[in-house]
Design a protein around this nucleic acid. Sequence first.
DNA 1: CTGAAAGCGCTTACAG
DNA 2: CTGAAAGCGCTTACAG
Lengths: 338, 338
Amino acid sequence: MSKTIYDIAKAAGVSIATVSRVFNDAETVRPATRKKVLKVADKMGYQPHVYAQGLARKKKNRIMMLIPVMSNYFFTEILRGIQDCLASHNFELNIVNINHEEAPLSQVENVLMKKWAEGYLLVSLHFSEDELKLLKRYKTPISLVDDCSELFDSVSFDNMQGAYLATNYLIKTGYKKIVFLSASAESIPIKDRLEGYKKALKENKISFDEKLIITGDSMERDGFTEKSGYEAMLKILQLKPLPDACFCTSDIKAVGAQKAMRETGIEIPLISFDNLTMAEYIGLSTVHQPMYTMGLNATKKLINRIHNKGVDPSHEIHQHELIIRSSSEPVLIKNVAL
Amino acid sequence: MSKTIYDIAKAAGVSIATVSRVFNDAETVRPATRKKVLKVADKMGYQPHVYAQGLARKKKNRIMMLIPVMSNYFFTEILRGIQDCLASHNFELNIVNINHEEAPLSQVENVLMKKWAEGYLLVSLHFSEDELKLLKRYKTPISLVDDCSELFDSVSFDNMQGAYLATNYLIKTGYKKIVFLSASAESIPIKDRLEGYKKALKENKISFDEKLIITGDSMERDGFTEKSGYEAMLKILQLKPLPDACFCTSDIKAVGAQKAMRETGIEIPLISFDNLTMAEYIGLSTVHQPMYTMGLNATKKLINRIHNKGVDPSHEIHQHELIIRSSSEPVLIKNVAL
DNA sequence: CTGAAAGCGCTTACAG
DNA sequence: CTGAAAGCGCTTACAG
């Protein structure tokens, strides 16, 4: 059916080695020979078989991105960063989806085992050190994006710091009773953000109140959904006395939370987390995460490691930036504005 | 380094053919032999090399999804559908990103040429019939998602009908001067939706007015961005006389448009297109697109074709469903509600 | 600058 | 039920 290197070699009157050299433009092939081969190959519509290539040389010029659906909302930005980095190197990208609900670790192991790629980008996959140690056994280059460990190159956020910033801002604005609109308590980012929230309270001598940690009932995607935010805010607005303000653990949850406020007609100032593109348009005060840069830098690290396996893992932790828009304004002002 | 079938064969005291059979559990291997091989393989951490497998058998049990970044907002839903379908079949999925800005056709051709997969899902890639004919030459199973052609299996929406529904609803509600908040005029979905808009006008004996087609200046992602929607609505609200209502060509654009309305304090009823999850939470009246079902059904068709290449292409065109929420309510009522 | 040949790690008729 | 061997389509020392 489809042409092989033998067909081209025969048609061009050279050996298969020469055809191979033309396509890998590695060693020097005489310009005339090269031209002839290229012409024939083009006419016959020849394209090297990637599987055969991968088997014969022992590299595949391919990196793989493993990502849980959960982090979909970051996806584009991270992907843009990765692709911009890859564009200048000779690598192709494959994306594999990790189902967050069923044993993500073994799914990752399954991918690594198959040796599809020369390097792997693990995005928003939060494994314990013990689990990561298991992955280390595959002795393959891995870069962590949105997660951090001593064991691998990583580019992450300081979730704790981000939550601290937001909470502290609310306190400094004058609010005392600040509710923490949470997601799954098992989620690593949630744990870190809760830390930051507590730290801000402590620094400002406000005692921590367990009852101000509120979660929605929906736990799909670890609770990082509009629905879960909506449910949680409904609960919050029934609290007596009403909290002064809300730190909401994601923009997407804030979208749900805002619906709850609109429906009940009760509003409290809110700061959320992520700064999705849309946040600007719905006036969300939020903690910015530089997804694009993270994707870019993690890929750089990965490619470095592919070319130079020996070096120690390096880490990059981005500090968050607080972006204040209308959602955190005092309710009084909001009402006047309307 | 890593174990091959030879290592396992030697350690288990069998031939490589037997090991291969155990892993493909095709022909009957004696249970005792199988058990022995499996035990050894497990202990040695053996995993077949996918490239070698792909080369040796002539199939790869792999399908590939080609998608432009542009359609990011549909991504999760479509992907869910695809994965739910794939789960029951023995196929793996790869995702390849098509850069919408630079010669998408040749990017697709590059992928097809490499014969990475047994079938390809082309999502939201709108090629002309002539271009598709070029793809036909690769003689490989292809399913079109969110696009339609006689040449390939396809699952698409009736964009025309959707726009008609929305526009007609606005007219029946009593609005006459309805603005069409557009995106890139080159975009196929935009062309179809404009058709539907015109059809509704015509049926209701309202003359079409070129000046009511408004586009933002940002043309990134063909203008399907919050920013572009914001810019367009700003222009719309300066129109004299002010239009009665707006048909907005996407939810994400509507997010931007709503910001413009909030900022200027001028509001007009609006219906958009897509029904992203978030639409429910920001009260968007919109035309629902069943992304999940489309992903699922397109994948089914693709797998059918892989197993049975001869059959004629089949097509599925989903009708849209209009979902009415608050954004299309008369402004008077909205103001009262506040 | 170019060719012959071995090898990459598997699968699969063909025998037995 | 199992093995020997050819073949999948390429790359890459090794010669020349």
